[in-house]
Design a protein around this nucleic acid. Sequence first.
DNA 1: AGTACCACCTGACGGC
DNA 2: TGCCGTCAGGTGGTAC
Length: 262
Amino acid sequence: MPELPDVAVFRDYLDATALHERIEEVEVRDDYVLEDLSARTLAQRLEGRSLESTEQHGKYLLVRIGEDGGWLVLHFGMTGFLKYFREDEQAPGHIRVLLRFENGYRLAFDCRRKLGKVALADSPEAWVRAKELGPDALALDAEGFLEVLAGRRGRVKSALMNQSILAGVGNVYADEALFQARIHPERSVDALDESRRRELFEALHDVLESAIEARADPERVPDRFLLPHRRRGKSCPRCGGQIERIELSGRATYFCPREQSS
DNA sequence: AGTACCACCTGACGGC
DNA sequence: TGCCGTCAGGTGGTAC
């Protein structure tokens, strides 16, 4: 699930749990998730230091390591999450990296499908540059949104999901924003006039903010959301029509053909 | 610049 | 109960 709203929830979680606590030991249980670094390097960077603050850029969570330790970068793939727990509590089932703190707690980076990544960076800016990420979808204002879309000719859903155009929007929330803006996912960007683009921006921001407020939990999301109805044959929360599923660049795409006809 | 397709990895689910 | 195909919200590479 980890798109921008989910990562925002992970960030709040980390802020509320694991900061300012000395890390005694780092255990890398599967170095497949390490991106361009060894378990040894990660351990050397973290052990004896603490996590001090967090930043988010799109789907990335960046954590500042104290005493000039640089930044820890977390990406959650499709199945990643964080869990802070006491040593005598039940541990999650697919821990890839585990930090042990001096206070007896642990922070697990759990990632069943191993599509997530753990990395180190000099700064959030350096990471964004290295990954060629576009601006964070929520940090952007309407003018910025118009700017990044200017000159684009592809399909609007592909543009929303393209992390180098806009960072943070994935399959689910791209569908959601288009549903709220009543735009067909296969519509091309250049077919949208400025007022439609502004409407899409408003819809996208509303969707992302509402999702964060709902803690990215499909069961807490507003009734108007498509999210809980992402299944073929389910009914549209607005008009009651049948939700349709198509493939768009290999990804399942859900929309209401009655409301998103153009 | 854009798209289609493949790969990476693991588990849940439904049909038989 | 077990086997098997299909599907899943991530990114990245290649070929066209």
